[in-house]
Amino acid sequence: MKLVTASFLPLLDASILIAAREKGFAEGEGIDLRLSREVSWANVRDRMAIGHFDVAHMLAPMPLASNLGLTPISERIIAPMALGSGGNAVTVSKALSEALDLPVSLDDPAEAGRSLRRLIAARQSNGDAPLRFGVVHPHSSHFFELRYWLAACGIDPETEIDTIVLPPPYMADALKRGTIDGYCVGEPYNTAALEAGDGVLLTTKNAIWRNSPEKVLGVREDWADDNPEMLGDLLRALYRSAEWCGTVANRRELATILSSGQYLNASAELLEAALAGPAGFEPFAHVATYPWQSHALWFYSQMVRWGQVEHTVEHASTASRSFRPDIYRDVLAPTGAPVPSANAKVEGALLEPTPVGAGQARLILGPDGFFDGRIFDPEALDRYISEQRRARN
């Protein structure tokens, strides 16, 4: 058996790694997958950088940040696989929800944002303190998508709200205590606040950007270079695990596995509700495990927009190459898995599920639209970044 060490945070989107161990998919590929539960993304980042783990359940923008030199200890990290899409939501306190004129549907983030903008304006007129929202890390989809949504709704996330970083497991407690007014976090911490009666869903990641990327398999590049066969075995195991996790009939068993104290340490009933809930975590369908370089470049565009990194040709190339669809394709195409032939796509162009490739009937892409109707074409990166900057100003 080949030993692979991996870290994870107690979130639903760690399911693929956890099920790979517990359901024998890793063992079936000759992998002894050792999992280490961590409390924060900073822990994952730092322990990966000093070589404590070979691979990690990782925020999708985190490999980019490491490769762009934005982390305390920079280490070359690649993402040869995504660990699903969706699964995040914006939850607010009951007091804040009662002050808002909320839309009937969670699928209307524009109306929710307009209501929030009106409330913020009223609070400013009254001299009230800014609302405070929690995010899990400044290099996270949560951070960028929350800001994208707020800005598109006419709210300046730099000046009109306060944002603080908290580990995911602490979010619901911080909301209950009144430390924050709302948060953007992965499941099951939205469902936990709802079921405790402490929070109300305002909108979801999938409503802001349909079928959008969330977590990836972060891999130390030196380890990948030294162990290509082992990495291939691991990706095949994780692909089989993703397919199992994405089968609705397996939800109850998956929730029971995840409920263990060594994993998410929550009731199976809560986790099953979160798996079926509106936040929409998808482990497998719509090629949810494919590491699109257009996803990496969209995150990069937001890093530039919010002043985390300067836009240069070299930086854009580094960001794009942080996601490795070539490795994914080389490993999984020979198994017969439906794999896109492209490394990137135009994001926001598909408004409906779309079959791709006459010989790959099972390959369905989209919908992938942004709630404001914007399109991100990675071939027009400079123009997109320029437009985003003007919108910010």
Rank of each mutant, 00 (worst) to 15 (best):
P291E: 00
C153E: 06
G28S: 05
D330C: 13
D377E: 12
I180E: 01
R37S: 09
N206M: 10
D372G: 08
D382G: 08
I364T: 15
A249I: 04
S294K: 00
F370D: 04
N265Q: 14
D198T: 09
A266D: 14
A19T: 08
M1T: 08
S317K: 15
Y148L: 10
P109Q: 03
P340H: 10
I327R: 02
E27P: 00
G197I: 06
E111K: 15
L102N: 02
T335Y: 00
A344Q: 15
D226N: 14
A380H: 15
E145I: 15
E387G: 10
M171W: 04
C184F: 14
H311F: 07
L70E: 10
S241H: 08
R118M: 10
I257H: 03
Y384L: 06
W298Q: 14
I375L: 14
G30I: 05
E347T: 09
A344W: 15
L106A: 00
R383C: 11
V92C: 01
R123Y: 13
W306Y: 04
P10G: 05
R389I: 12
R37V: 06
K205W: 01
R383P: 04
G28L: 04
M62E: 06
L201R: 11
P355M: 11
G182E: 04
L363N: 04
V185C: 03
E379A: 15
H311R: 12
Q124Y: 06
D326V: 05
G87D: 01
A65F: 07
Q308A: 14
D368K: 09
A249K: 06
P228F: 12
L146H: 01
D107K: 11
